[in-house]
Amino acid sequence: MTIDWSRERILILAPHPDDETLGCGGLIRKAKDAGAEVYIQFITVGDTEDNSARGPSTAQERYGEIKEVADFFGWDGWDFAFPGDEYHLKLDVLSRFELSNAIERHSPLSVTTLKPTVVITPHHTSYNQDHQATAEAVHTALRPSDNRFRHHPRLVLAYEEAADQWRQDTAPPPNFFVELTEAQVDAKIEAMHLYGSQAHAHPHTRSDLTLRSLAALRGMHVGVPFAEGYHTLRCLV
């Protein structure tokens, strides 16, 4: 399957700032280089007690990092659905109805408003409760129905992060691969450096070596130097 990314309008759901880069940073660079539209729907952000050399990070600090990453990639838009400490790392107590409705129709970057051709979500087997809640809400928001009355994105994917492997019932291996150049992998890593409050040295799931190693592993699976792996939830060709 060959995709002409220049024709795509991509909506990426990121529970927190940096998830879109960890899961899709290479694809984002590849798609933007081709001329695609890329939008990031963040779900929540708040003050965080990070276990890093930088110490705790504030929501205000994260907003500054987002603006740098948005400029670096050239995103066409980004938005927060539920910002604030009331929701950050607590999306599992938010009703599925409220969260899925925000994704489907109530956010400025909702599926109904944006009408994306591609939607990319976290995988539901993540250990993180916000990732699980987001993934399940996306499944509800994109439920099958009559496409004459509700928009159905042609391609729906779930992205992976290295930390997702920390479960006994981890997801099966990816079944959709996006080939990356070394420059696109480098761009993904550079973008993570812009998320200074979230970047970590090796060994860590967000280290440079982890990101490059996962890209090399997924590339090996399909016979190319580098790739990102995804799980196909819907593919209409």
Rank of each mutant, 00 (worst) to 15 (best):
D146S: 14
F80Q: 09
L13W: 11
A141C: 03
D76T: 07
P225L: 05
E228L: 08
D208N: 11
L142C: 04
H16R: 06
K90L: 13
H106F: 13
R148A: 11
D71M: 05
H202C: 01
R234M: 10
P122W: 06
A137N: 03
Q41K: 02
H204P: 03
R9I: 04
H123K: 08
A135L: 04
R154L: 08
N147D: 14
I66A: 03
V138T: 13
R154T: 10
F42T: 10
R96F: 12
G26P: 04
A227N: 12
A70D: 13
G77V: 02
F73T: 10
P108C: 01
I3E: 12
V93S: 15
E136G: 01
A158K: 08
S197T: 15
G223F: 10
R54P: 04
H106A: 11
E20N: 08
N175H: 04
Q41S: 08
N51C: 10
V38G: 03
K188M: 15
G23C: 05
V111R: 00
Y127N: 10
R96V: 15
D92W: 05
G77H: 09
S57M: 06
V111A: 00
N101A: 03
A199R: 12
P56L: 01
F176P: 03
Q168I: 07
D19Y: 11
R150K: 04
V38C: 04
S110W: 01
G74P: 09
P15I: 00
E68N: 12
R218Y: 15
P83C: 05
I43V: 15
V222P: 09
D164Y: 14
V224G: 13
I12T: 01
L142D: 03
P144V: 10
L99N: 09
N101H: 03
R218H: 14
P153S: 01
D92K: 10
N128R: 09
P17Y: 00
V178R: 02
A59V: 03
C24P: 10
A199I: 15
L155T: 06
T112C: 00
Q165V: 09
A201I: 00
F176N: 07
T112R: 06
V222D: 12
V118D: 05
Q132R: 14
P174L: 06
A14Y: 02
A135R: 00
A158I: 03
S207G: 01
L157W: 05
R154K: 14
G77N: 08
K90H: 15
T58E: 11
T112W: 00
V69S: 01
R143S: 13
C24A: 14
H152F: 11
P174S: 09
Y159D: 04
L13V: 15
L11P: 01
G74N: 02
E20K: 03
A36E: 03
Q129H: 14
L157I: 05
E182A: 11
L94K: 12
A162P: 09
R105Y: 09
H200L: 07
R7S: 15
A183N: 10
I10S: 02
E98D: 13
A102C: 13
E228M: 05
A31I: 12
N128M: 06
G77E: 06
H151K: 02
F80N: 06
A183G: 10
G84I: 08
Y39N: 07
F149C: 02
A14C: 06
R218W: 12
F82Q: 05
V185P: 06
G35Q: 09
K90G: 08
F82N: 06
A81V: 10
